[in-house]
Computed example of a mutant assay.
Amino acid sequence: MLSWVVTFLVIALIAGILGFGGVAGASIEIAKIIFFIAIVLFLVSAVVGLARGRSRV
């Protein structure tokens, strides 16, 4: 999922250099959204992993 973020950032950089401000802005926003989704999914999976990893003796 983070590879998508890097892809959209590269698209934004290239679009920004070539002068396509709208495309660059949209790509940055998409990259931000995907990044935050990835962070939330990571945190949820970490919490679930910690909760399931504990066993009661």
Rank of each mutant, 00 (worst) to 15 (best):
S3E: 13
L18R: 15
V40C: 11
V47P: 06
S27F: 01
L43D: 10
I17E: 10
V47A: 15
V48D: 02
E29Q: 05
S45I: 12
A15L: 08
A51W: 09
S55E: 09
I30K: 01
G21C: 04
A46N: 08
E29K: 10
G16Q: 09
A26V: 07
F20P: 02
E29F: 07
V6K: 15
V57L: 14
A26K: 10
A15N: 15
A24V: 02
W4S: 09
V47R: 00
I30V: 03
I37Y: 13
V10I: 08
I11D: 02
L9M: 13
V40Q: 11
S27T: 03
G22H: 09
A24L: 04
I39T: 10
F20G: 03
V57W: 12
I30G: 00
I34S: 02
F36H: 03
V40F: 08
L50H: 03
V57S: 07
I11H: 01
V57Y: 13
G53Q: 07
A15Q: 14
G22I: 06
A46D: 11
S45E: 07
E29C: 03
I39L: 12
G53C: 09
L2H: 11
S45W: 04
L9S: 13
F35E: 01
I39H: 08
V47H: 01
G19Y: 14
I39A: 06
L50G: 15
A12D: 01
W4N: 10
L43M: 14
G16M: 05
G21I: 05
V40M: 12
V40L: 11
I28D: 02
A26S: 12
R54M: 04
V57K: 10
G19F: 14
L41K: 06
F42K: 08
I30Y: 00
S27W: 02
S3Y: 11
I39F: 13
F20V: 03
G21P: 06
G22F: 06
I28G: 01
V10Q: 13
R56E: 11
G21D: 06
L41S: 06
F35G: 00
R54Q: 03
I30W: 00
I17N: 09
L41T: 05
I33P: 00
S3R: 13
